[in-house]
Every structure is written in structure tokens, then in C-alpha cells.
């Protein structure tokens, strides 16, 4: 199929960006979206032009590196997948596809489709851990966890830190991301001990970094490639109120 791509090009954080139009002919429906961009970049490099910069690594939906707005949706129009898993079979011959970076104040654009997501690491550093030294752990089966709780903790823990939730949110809120980690630990006995300190530290850091407030519209949940649930945000709020 033949496609028109409108891709956001921005040389660096200081310059203004703009959409550049590229024609892509003979795109195979079996390609992934990133493989289609690979093909575009191959063409650009062969013409000695600057290829489109984008983050990517595992290409199997788990590392969380890739992420871009495609036709108005983070990771594209297909629910519950990352950009690397988006197949070109979801597009039609003659389509025009708009590709943009995440847009959120705490995620400044670095180049083209690459944004700086180090704010997420800073939030995790503030409190996203259980304080146990190597060698200090008790025998694993001495900590019993109800299967239902453990499964719920797992469901919260599958967040890949891609940033789609923030990009989808009109307030650029990081509540879904933060609540997923808070929930994972809040649901486990190992995590209860520091629960109060953790939630205060992480929420404080999140606010300090300029993420917006949550107004419960649920765009984050709708766009999350790992289907992290909005109920995590409710749990975060409960944990936060309990922490004072």
C-alpha cells in the first residue's frame, strides 16, 4: 500500500518543530509500524538525509521505549498494544498518517519523536521500592500472600513506563503511572510497612515535576497499552489520605 506520512520533525529541544510530509510506497501490511519507519529511515539515510529519531528497543511490547502519537492516539488506534506491536494491516492504502511525539510539559521533546521521560525515574527513585538489603530477606514462603491480592498486585505491576497515560491526559497527569506502583506494593504485605512514606514521597515528587492533576476522565486507562485500571488511581487516593 501507499501512504502519506506527516511526521513531527524537531532538531532539538530549543528549536521549533513542524510536520514534514513523506510518501511511503509499497508498504507491506505485514510490517510493524516501527518497521515501516525503519524503511523510511533507510531511504533517508541512503539519500544522506537525517533519519527520523524515535526510541525503540525490545520490539515486543515490554521495554516501554517506543511511544508516539499516531493519528491522535498514543501508540496508535489499536487498543492495548505498544507502537512496536502496531501492525500496518490496520491501515489502508492511501491513508494519511499523523505521527507526533508525546506532548506533556514534564516530557520535553529531545528530538523528533523522542521525549525526555526521566521524570518517571525520578518518581520511582522517590519511593518506588521496598527497603530490604540483599541478604536480609526472610525465606520466601514465610511471607504468605492471598492469591487474589497477589494477582491484583501483578496486574498493577505490569506497567512498562512508556508514558502513554501522561500523553493521553489533557492535564498531563501521571496518576495512572504512580498509582500502579503504589497499588502493587499496597496490596502486598511486604509493601505495607513503608506504605505511608512511599505514597507521600511519590505524590510529592510527581507534583514537584509538574504533572497535572487527575480529573477522572479515564483517557489514561483507555490508552494504556498494558490496560492498567483506573481503580489503581482510587487506591492511590485512599492510600494518600491514609498517609497523614
Amino acid at each position: 500500500m501507499n501512504l502519506i506520512l506527516k511526521i513531527w520533525r524537531q532538531k532539538n529541544p530549543k528549536t521549533m518543530g513542524n510536520f514534514v510530509t513523506y510518501r511511503m510506497d509499497d508498504v507491506s501490511p505485514e510490517m510493524s509500524f516501527l518497521e515501516m519507519l525503519d524503511a523510511l529511515n533507510k531511504k533517508l539515510v541512503e539519500e544522506d538525509k537525517d533519519p527520523v529519531a524515535f526510541d525503540h528497543d525490545c520490539r515486543e511490547g515490554i521495554c516501554g521505549s517506543c511511544g508516539m502519537y499516531i493519528n491522535g492516539h498514543p501508540h496508535g488506534p489499536v487498543p492495548a498494544i505498544t507502537t512496536c506491536h502496531l501492525s500496518m494491516r490496520y491501515f489502508r492504502d492511501g491513508d494519511t498518517i499523523w505521527v507526533e511525539p508525546w506532548r506533556a510539559k514534564p516530557f520535553p521533546v529531545i528530538k523528533d519523536l523522542i521525549v525526555d521521560r526521566s521524570a518517571f525515574d525520578k518518581i520511582q527513585t522517590a519511593g518506588g521500592f521496598i527497603s530490604v538489603n540483599t541478604g536480609a530477606a526472610p525465606e520466601a514462603n514465610s511471607i504468605l500472600v492471598r492469591k487474589k491480592k497477589s494477582d491484583e498486585a501483578f496486574d498493577s505491576s505490569v506497567c512498562i513506563g512508556c508514558g502513554a497515560c501522561v500523553a493521553a491526559c489533557k492535564n498531563a497527569s501521571a496518576m495512572l503511572f504512580v498509582s500502579a506502583k503504589i497499588s502493587q506494593f499496597a496490596l502486598l504485605p511486604q509493601g505495607r510497612i513503608e506504605a505511608k512514606e512511599r505514597v507521600r514521597a511519590m505524590v510529592e515528587k510527581m507534583d514537584e515535576l509538574g504533572f497535572g492533576s487527575c480529573s477522572n476522565t479515564g483517557a489514561c486507562e483507555a490508552e494504556c497499552p498494558k490496560q492498567i485500571k483506573l481503580t489503581n488511581i482510587a487506591r492511590l487516593n485512599r492510600e494518600y489520605y491514609k498517609a497523614f
Binding site: 540483599t134 520466601a140 511471607i143 492469591k147 511486604q190
Partner: peptide, 22 residues
């Protein structure tokens, strides 16, 4: 075995049986 103990203490949600064990 120490690795499993440590990860469990760190809150890694390994699969569990209904009685709460791993």
C-alpha cells in the same frame, strides 16, 4: 534460593497458590 527470597521481599509478584505460597 537466596535470589527467590530477595525478589519476594522486594515485592516481585510471583505466581501463588491459594494457600498463599509460591
Amino acid at each position: 534460593n537466596d535470589v527467590i527470597d530477595h525478589y519476594t521481599a522486594l515485592g516481585v509478584p510471583f505466581a501463588r497458590d491459594y494457600g498463599g505460597t509460591l
